[in-house]
Amino acid sequence: MRRISMALGMTAVVLSAQAPPPYTRTLETYTVPDLVLVNQDGAKVKLKGLLDSGEPIILDFIFGTCTTICPVLSAGYANLQAKLPPGGPKIHLVSISIDPENDTPKVMRDYLKRYRAKPGWDFFTGRREDIDKVMNAFNAYIPNKMSHYPLTLIRDPKTGKWIRIFGLMSSSEFMAECKKAGLL
């Protein structure tokens, strides 16, 4: 613990003393694991079918009681939904819980309501083993949910590759990334 609190102190120095770190962007190939998750309505959904359907997809990892990062990621999702032109292209926003024990369908429904999520933003929970598999498949595995980091994955509908964005984006940066990926 002592080491941790020292480490915390140092992180604080770095972050507060500097301009916010710009996000990084890489292009990745991921294999979506074949497993079933549960959405906010309690429905069982095959992840592979969902993510490989060819529709425009954005994915992130959050949890219902998360501080700092998830609120900001989710505010980004909510803003994106608000900015999508009506009748225009649909983007399926997918959030996957990294606290599957606490995130029941009801917790996830309440969370989405708080962000005024519109249809097209789904929140998934599942068996811990399966959630671990999903995190691993996207090179996002963390053993402790509190050391969770901000990650947004945009699937390029043409190539099936994933644009991996590490860090927090502004709303205009998020729109620009969606355009660049051909989602808009």
Binding site: T11, T68, R114, H148
Partner: peptide
């Protein structure tokens, strides 16, 4: 959607998550 308490917590001493320190 979220308010001060989400990041700074109820006692106000802040939090640490994913490399971001909430003072």
């Amino acid at each position: 959607s979220f308010s001060c308490v989400s990041c700074h917590l109820r006692g106000g001493l802040g939090s640490w998550e994913g490399g971001i320190v909430t003072l």
